[in-house]
Design a protein around this nucleic acid. Structure first.
Lengths: 141, 141
DNA sequence: GTACGTGCAAAGAATTTGCAGATAA
DNA sequence: TTATCTGCAAATTCTTTGCACGTAC
């Protein structure tokens, strides 16, 4: 599906800027923060402002077209993949990794929250990623 | 256990300020943010500074004596209860609720992260709490 | 033409830093 | 004494706001 139609499917008017931001999110699965998106897009769209990035991402989240991750307490990160999945933040390299979330996980996890109306579930892991674990081993030898 | 001994068990030197902050965390299960802790303790300790609250909480988290919650993107909240449990943030009243985490949840959730070294797991829910749901119903009738 | 979108500059707010004085072993 | 802790003030950084201009239907 083209990005324009994708935005429309979330009832978001596709402006040039919004298309650019969504395109970036859909092609960069790095869970970028505002600054990364801004820096990247600014190269080809010099007039693009950070305010617009803020506005756009807030709009995306409100319309369910993107996820805001609060796994990093420094700044918010954004994810264009809205399918349920978990996230792992490596405290060494600060990368965020996607992890699968088993089908029955959500159902089971809901058992304790009967009386609550749940809009969103986030499962965050923090620790050391395989890459950094490997590096640590090499440095020890 | 007295708070002094509790802090010592985490290898934290118990100063007057640290005891006060930990006492507050252990007796107020409201997942307070920095400002709440500061405002509350400032009444009885007028010289206590916000910087010290920041320093103290960072120390607690580093030593595993408290949890930092990133469920609210506005500011960090802190939890003196370090036993594994989930959190629910009500988007209406902004209260954070504790929820049980079934014993086998953690084991099962770890199955996808074999190659990772997991230090911390956080399960966050967002939505509407029972109290606010009740209020909404009343307002509709 | 009217509503909506964009972007600059300024404001606001949370957190960190530098450093000097206070405290404790 | 000597290292550690505290707290003020300033700096830094992320995010929001106000407002005027641009754009699109």
């Amino acid at each position: 599906m083209k990005t324009v139609e994708y935005l429309l499917s979330f009832n978001i008017k596709p402006s040039v800027q919004r298309i650019a931001v969504m395109d970036y999110l859909l092609t960069h699965k790095t869970h970028p923060n505002i600054d990364e998106i801004y820096s990247a897009l600014n190269k080809t769209m010099p007039t693009l402002s950070k305010t617009t990035i803020y506005n756009t991402l807030r709009l995306f989240v409100e319309h369910g077209a993107a996820l805001m991750l609060t796994i990093d307490d420094k700044y918010a990160c954004f994810d264009g993949d809205i399918h349920p999945h978990a996230h792992f933040l490596c405290s060494k390299c600060n990368k965020i990794y996607d992890l699968p979330l088993s089908e029955d996980f959500l159902e089971r996890s809901m058992q304790g929250v009967d009386e609550y109306k749940v809009d969103e579930v986030a499962l965050y892991y923090r620790g050391t990623c395989p890459n950094c674990l490997k590096k640590e081993k090499l440095n020890k030898n």
